[in-house]
Amino acid sequence: MNAAPLLEVQDLVKEFPRPRRGWLAPRVAPLRAVDGVSFTLARGQALGLVGESGSGKTTVARLVLGLERASSGSIRLEGRELTTLSRAEWRPLRRRVQLVFQDPAGALDPRHTALDCVAEGLAIQRLGKPRERRLRALELLVSVGLAPRQANLYPHEFSGGQRQRIGIARALALEPELLVLDEPVSALDVSIRAQILNLLHELQERRGLAYLFIAHDLAVVRALCPRIAVMQHGKLVECASRDELFARPQHEYTRALLAAAPRAR
C-alpha cells in the first residue's frame, strides 16, 4: 500500500503569455491563470472545485490531466511527479486519470456508435483483442444504465443525459483511479441532473474512484463532494469540509457564492 495520497498538488502555477498591444508597446506581464494552488485528494475521495468562469478551475483540471504544462509547482500521482514527465512517459499514466466533459455531444465522435466510442480508449491503449474490447465496452454501457440494444446507436440518437452516460462509460473504460469531471451536469436538463449525480455516486462507491469535480453550481458540488475547494482569480481561497464550508464560510468570496445561490424556500 502506498502511503502517498492519490493526487497531491503543491504551489501549482500556470502562466499564459499575453500578446503586446502593438510591436512597440511595452511587454505585458503574463496572465496567472493558476496562482499557487495546493490540495490533496485521497483514493476514493471526491473533492469539489468551485469558482466562477475564469477562476482557473478548468486550467487546474487540464494541468492534472497533463494537457497543459505547469509553469511551476508540482503535481504528484501516488508520489510520482507528473509535471516533469515527457509525452512518452505520460502515456501509460494517462489511463489512471480520465476526463468527463461538460458537453457530451462535443466529446463523442458523431461517426462512431456508442460501443465504438467506449471501445476506442481500449484500442488506443492496445488493451485486449477487438472482440474483448467490444464485450468490455458493452458491459460498461450497461453499467452506466444504457440498454444493450442501444450500443449500436450513434451519438445524435441519444438524449443529452444518455450521451453523458456514454461519456462516463468511455472515461471508465481504462479503469482509472481518478476521474476529472468538468461541469458534468451543467448542460443537462434539470430532471436528468439528479440521475447522473446518482450514477456518479454509485460508480464511486462501487469502484472506489476518486473525483475531482469541477462546477460552478454549489448545490451540485455539495451533493457529491465531502470536501470543497473554492477558487477565485487563480487562487484557492478556501478549502474545507462540506459541513464546515456551508456552516462557517471563512472567505468573503465563499460567502458571496453562497449568497448568490437560489434562495431556500
Binding site: 434539470v190 439528479a194 449525480l197 446518482n198 454509485e202 455539495r222 453562497l258 437560489p262
Partner: peptide, 12 residues
C-alpha cells in the same frame, strides 16, 4: 430533483 443548498444529503 433540483439539488439545493439546504437539501438532504442521502443518495440516491
Amino acid at each position: 430533483s433540483s439539488p439545493r443548498l439546504d437539501g438532504a444529503l442521502s443518495f440516491p
